[in-house]
Amino acid sequence: MSEWERVLWKKQAYADNYIPPSFLSSLRRNANVHPYTYAPLVLASCAIIQHISAVFILLSAFVHLHTMALDPRLLVWVSILCFLLGYTAWELTQARTNTSTEMRWWRAKAFKSSILVFLALLALSPVLKTLTEATSSDSIWALSAFLLGLNVLLADYSSSFDRTTTKLTSVLSMNAGISASVVLASRLSSNLSVFALILFAVQLLALLPILRKYLNTSPLRILISTALLITASGVLIMPISSALAFVQGGILAFIGLACPAVLVWAQKYKNEIKGSWDPAVPQLR
């Protein structure tokens, strides 16, 4: 009896349900799976912790402004200080990668737009203060909670550098965050408070995510920046409610320590099946 061949055009002396020795020989299991290890996952989840801490910092700043415990002038100065610090960090990370003429152009652009945002916010703050006067506070809390949830959900936590393509979701995330801070600010009592909160929100929700990518390049930097943000949020939340601070600590520990452990544990169920039946990916030049 001649040997079985994997062809259909030949009439073979084997039954149609003959199981050849080569059956399923093209099957590949977990061929291109790189198992995750715990430490890199913890480092990768630091970006999420940083973002959530920033949201908590913004919320506690709002509460302190709302209860008049914080002078809005102080917050404006803090914002300006943060901006200068952040800008210096940005300059330091950029110095190596770009040419001097490009940098000059970038600097002029950044200076112009920061002055513009500053003045526009200052001019608009009376309008924003009365923006939602006719709406009840309960609706505002619900709306801002929803928008901040959206902001956290859609933010770009990746660590890849690709300046040419901005993901649509990260733009949506930023918009949701700024909208949340605008509706929250409209509950505040003075024009200066409104201005201070929105300025602070722009720093935390629009500029910090851009800077975050360039800061999170080495494990040490990630840990230092994460620790700073967690401490800042803890210090600001503690006076409001110690229970809330514990809840925040619990959430951050769950995301940073427990979730990576669950992912590492769940990998033993990974079963990726590849074979000759998979659609090919065309390779074009």
């Binding site: 259909l8 149609d16 349900n17 074979g275």
Partner: peptide, 24 residues
């Protein structure tokens, strides 16, 4: 309809290969 199809179906439906036939 083919040996590749048979392998695919056996895996997808968790069948015993002896009940799967190849008829082009």
């Amino acid at each position: 309809v083919s040996n590749t199809g048979r392998e695919n179906t056996v895996l997808r439906a968790s069948l015993h290969p002896s009940i799967a036939h190849v008829i082009p």
